[in-house]
Write a protein that binds this DNA or RNA. Structure first.
Lengths: 344, 344
DNA sequence: TCGCATCAGTGAAGCGGTTAAGTTCCGTGC
DNA sequence: GCACGGAACTTAACCGCTTCACTGATGCGA
């Protein structure tokens, strides 16, 4: 529990080599000293098992080689995938990825971001719950921030990887319309107070254009809750409790939510694909092994992780980058969960 | 990019109140000072928007209220769930959970653990790749460590949450035998050099006892790779490449792997449940919405997260705890993926 | 031969807190 | 009336590293 084995400090290496701590500090970072002393210092450091204390280093203003990765809601399976992928990407570049979960709470999200900033992470990747929060500005001023999925409107970020949601929505609704669907329910993730996310707007625009009857409902990512919401939808008892027509297709803004619909459909003995079409949004690996495999959007998770990491690393290293705003286009992974139906 | 807005420091609060920094430091932690000054200091601190710098605090030897959560392999869907659950659990207790991923690499795992220790996390939760590594000892001496899923044999940990693997294996193999299966393939996660994990041993013991023909194969968590391995198994071309009999049941040591088997079975036009029985190990939320729903073991993930967090927090706060070794018993979630078959 | 960069290395001042060891001041018990 | 003890603060020494300003040597062109 206590800290028995004191670690070797810079000073000890200095004493061992007969140099000043400053010289050693420089030497170990390959600056400013002769090749010869550098070798000598490195050897001594190795012999003594010296490893720089990241905390002291951070306090004195150095790099930490830590990068914060902040998920808005780690309950979402796709976010889990994304965070893991980003983590690996960064690890490959010898940086430590600290993954944090805001649990869908905008205040917590900001608090965590601040904590990360205070920990002197070199950079911060965030898939935000509340992209328009004021707080981002100050954070982005202190550390390079790359946002994923949404622009941090109030902040000057180091880059962003965005999803062309409008394209995604158009693609899916087009597809569903082409299959003959007219009455569609759209399930979007609940942001406790998701402010001006324009997804709803896009949905309504597309719906108007395509003459579709859509209903947009918020829905949590967690399977149980998603199932509950889906149950109500398939019951015709959605939204306000008013009894209304059951949709022929459900378009879910995350595969997690789609899984809830599968569960509810099974309970109601509805065959997904035949009796009810379902479309997801993320192409989670599991989606392809469902029965029927989930028709969903593929945004290229691996690339997203790669691009996001690249942007962050570039910013950290002070490199300029040509395009700091990446817009990902979706590809429809057409599988078996959305099928045609006679008109009506 | 630069750090423009300097944060208010302890000194500034001291000056504002006409006290010494020491007094302020004490006051803010409610020690050693009169009620009156404490109030005065708190007010000044609030007015100035003072927030202690965690790095400086850590350097000086204080608490950080950060807890490290280290996953051996965040590719595994169940680990994703577990880490997320632990994160929430800790968050609820006002501690920051830093989730890291060792990517299945034992060396990296230790490096990350050290990094975390050096970051002065108050505690460390770890679901280890290599529980018998020497390195754990020194880490556990510097920070309270709670291990999940395996004992850190060489280290004096603050607690452990273990799974009764033997019971799990017995349960599943018993179950499969009862259903009439005799030829069973067991797919275990690859540890790059998983040393003395006794799972294989348990499997063989149980197999001998039950007169089963089992083959144990290592398998990665990632869906693509798991599918590839499963493909070979269903091909009868497993292991060494020698042609041999196809098993009637596959027992997977993680649901992730089971998903790979589902995928491979679909490719081979085998109906899971009828033509091939599959059993998983984790009860991932998605498992219940597969077709057929995956028969798997339920270890009570929520409780695991809760217990692990509890042990860690207790250790951090220096509380003694009655049982620092929790053994979780599995419950068989019998669903549709493992069904009976005639003898043979 | 001199003046002036340049290079290798040193000293010391932080970074922003914590904490052990005083220093005052004051109420008490005897 | 006085030594004593504790409350309330202050002083100053770190924690371990980075970095700025500076000192000597050395090289070198003029």
């Amino acid at each position: 529990m206590a800290r028995p084995s004191k670690r070797t400090t810079l000073r000890e290496v200095a004493e061992a080599t007969g140099l000043s701590t400053a010289a050693v500090s420089y030497a170990l970072r390959g600056k400013h000293v002769s090749k010869e002393t550098e070798q000598r210092v490195r050897k001594a450091a190795a012999d003594l098992g010296y490893e720089a204390d990241p905390i002291a280093r951070a306090l004195a203003g150095g790099r930490t080689s830590m990068v914060g990765v902040l998920s808005g809601d780690l309950q979402d399976l796709w976010q889990q995938q994304l965070m893991a992928a980003i983590g690996r990407e960064l690890l490959a570049g010898d940086r430590y990825a600290l993954i944090l979960d805001a649990g869908g709470d905008p205040e917590r999200e900001l608090a965590l971001a601040k904590q990360l900033r205070d920990q002197r992470v070199d950079g911060l990747l965030v898939s935000p719950v509340d992209p328009s929060a004021e707080g981002w500005a100050k954070i982005a001023d202190a550390v390079p921030v790359v946002s994923i999925g949404d622009s941090l409107r109030r902040a000057r970020t180091a880059g962003e990887v965005l999803f062309d949601n409008r394209a995604g929505i158009d693609t899916v609704l087009d597809h569903l319309r082409g299959l003959g669907h007219r009455r569609i329910t759209v399930l979007t993730p609940t942001g406790p107070s998701t402010p001006d996310r324009p997804a709803d707007v896009y949905v309504r625009e597309a719906a108007d254009r395509l003459h579709l009857t859509v209903e947009v409902l918020p829905c949590a990512q967690e399977l149980g809750e998603a199932t509950a919401v889906a149950r109500r939808v398939l019951d015709g008892a959605g939204g306000g409790g008013a009894r209304r027509a059951v949709p022929t297709a459900v378009f879910c803004f995350s595969d997690s939510i789609a899984y809830g619909v599968y569960a509810a459909a099974a309970e109601a003995s509805l065959a997904v694909g035949r009796d009810l079409s379902v479309v997801g949004f993320d192409d989670h690996p599991v989606s392809r092994i469902l029965t029927p495999p989930l028709t969903t959007l593929d945004w290229g998770l691996a690339d997203i992780a790669k691009e996001a990491a690249r942007l962050a690393v570039a910013a950290i290293e002070g490199r300029r980058v040509r395009r700091k705003r990446i817009l990902c286009a979706p590809r429809l992974s057409e599988r078996g969960s959305a099928l045609g139906r006679g008109p009506g």
